[in-house]
Amino acid sequence: MSHSASHPAAGSPAGSSTARGIALGAGLLVLALVPLMVGASPYMLGLLISALILAGLALSWALLGNLGGMVSFGHAAFFGVGAYASALLAARLNVPVLLAIPIGGLFATLSSLAMLPALRLSGPYFALAILAYAQIFRILATELDWLTGGAAGLQRFPSLPTVFGLDLSERAGSYVLVLACVVLFALVYVVIRRSHVGTALRAIAESEDATRVVGVNATVLKTWMLLLSAFIAGVFGALNAHIIGFLEPDYAFSGIWSVMPIIAAVFGGYRTVLGPIVGAVVIYLFDQVVAKSLIPVGHQILLGIVLAVMVLVAPNGLSGLVARLFPRSEKHHAEA
């Protein structure tokens, strides 16, 4: 019974699916550079930048959900902390912006340490605990006005610099930078998922005892995922802050930053790497271009409907649908 070559079993890193993944990724990357080559309008580039920010956030959410097995309703906390930390470091301590951004991510990681006790909680309790944290951070940002400028917000902090002749504060430059970050973190995600840590995490979700009994410290692995997810969200929060050049608590910690990544990731397929990214771009453009023009106030109702329909009809998202329409093997798990 040596059928493994023609029949890549679910979960095994089969060569052909790797090649397909790389090809797909490279294809998308080329596609992503098209707007620059054809010289898209600043408005269009602006939309795409925001979509990619959301893509990074959705990726971070999906990493926690898929590898860590945790649903977060509070990614706004990390996004906001990253944004504020980076903006304040650059404004008050003159830290170079490109250094302040990853440090902002580290601050988000730091803030996620406060959530470690929540890791012991099961599904809904974790989800709601993290939501509580996000609210607390928003209120703190409003109340600590000596630091954050309070409800009035922060206006004056440095924007992105020029590197190697590329002005990152220009739309095209920002676009390239954000895109590069999305690709970078997607690669990090892929590497982790293929590592033994990723394999163990895949097993934990449904076989906790069996996995722990062979020596896997589930809590520690999940902690790493939480810290990394917070870091990624923080970096994109910081990027976004320096690109738009303005921060206020109700914006930086807005529930939008918790809700949109969920919709994007579930829509695209949160068990895959590309799903959340593609989902974010599609959902964001749909929301801004279609939904907003149809229903100026309350356009999120359409997103809610999309999310509900997706969970009911295609819980594995777009990527699950694609896999169903173009089956590669008889036993396909949604984890390509």
């Binding site: 679910a10 979960g11 394999t199 097993a203 449904e206 062979v214 020596g215």
Partner: peptide, 16 residues
């Protein structure tokens, strides 16, 4: 361990 191949089961057990 669910969602893992036989070999991956052993690899996780060995590594951890």
């Amino acid at each position: 361990m669910h969602h893992l191949s036989v070999r991956e089961n052993l690899a996780v057990a060995q590594v951890f």
